[in-house]
Design a protein around this nucleic acid. Structure first.
Lengths: 146, 146
DNA sequence: CATCGATTGGTAATTGGTTGCAATTGATAG
DNA sequence: CTATCAATTGCAACCAATTACCAATCGATG
């Protein structure tokens, strides 16, 4: 995992560079995204922020996550069921492992996943822009609860 | 690509084994899925069927695709934008390459993607059930049209 | 050929994440 | 202190793929 405060600083720098105001709500969203513990959904970010900002609006969280995403500082993981998870800690494509029961999302360390995009370009003639590699399974905790 | 008629026969065998009636509409859906040329959406299957079955209902296509999917004979590729593509030719997880412009979906031949699920299980302690590997890019045809 | 449950066709309803909008707030400059 | 204006709030509305519903029809069987 990348350093959390470094990532926070990078996001804030991008916001500054594009002359967006640094409101407390916006900074709080940035701080959570910089950590991205568990790859939170917008709703989870919203819930966490309610403690410090009891009147914050869900719309505000949406807008700020989208704003930071538009600056390239957060990776959006959209799933077929309509749910979205966000990773501002490593805002570039990388493999994920998702527990289908508790919905936890973690980053595995894969030694073998290298230059596969290059191989695909050679094989297919496509110009590859991005990719997704997701593994779906049951985490240790959920397996024990059975 | 697996043999189309073999796949069709396999799907029909599964339908028979589970005592579902072999209606013309159902068989036609099975035939398209067995080929899965271009990894069609439900709507694309529906449009193709309109030529032979001018009164077929979209609901019928949905029902039969879902039925064949429930028998494990078709792979569903759900995307974050809500679109779904189906592959009854290779109904097991495998890599895909998607053109973000024309939405064409093809199957690349990847030599390096092997036993990655096993590596993930070892690394994370998860019991891996399935996976998705998607590359998004621009196909040759769309690249030239620019 | 008769029977009966499965299937079909046509359409309305659903769904829940996301966005639009009017009103309000709050930070900043003068 | 006041004016200004972007940001935020709170809620209503959206939206399109999918599902539910039900009467009419069909497939399989003996």
């Amino acid at each position: 995992m990348a350093d959390q405060s470094e990532r926070f600083d990078a996001i804030v720098a991008k916001l500054r560079a594009n002359e967006f105001k640094l409101t407390p709500q916006r900074l709080a969203v940035a701080r959570i995204l910089a950590g991205s513990a568990g790859h939170p959904s917008v709703d989870q970010i919203y819930t966490r922020l309610l403690k410090d900002f009891p009147t914050i609006s869900l719309a505000t969280v949406y807008r700020n996550v989208m704003l930071i995403k538009s600056l390239g500082e957060v990776l959006e993981l959209g799933f077929a069921d309509g749910s979205n998870r966000y990773d501002g800690n490593k805002p570039y494509p990388h493999p994920h492992v998702i527990c289908v029961q508790c919905k936890q999302v973690i980053d595995p360390d894969l030694s073998t996943f290298k230059n596969m995009a290059a191989e695909v370009e050679k094989e297919t003639g496509y110009r590859i822009l991005t990719h997704r590699l997701d593994f779906f399974g049951i985490c240790r905790e959920c397996a024990q609860k059975q």
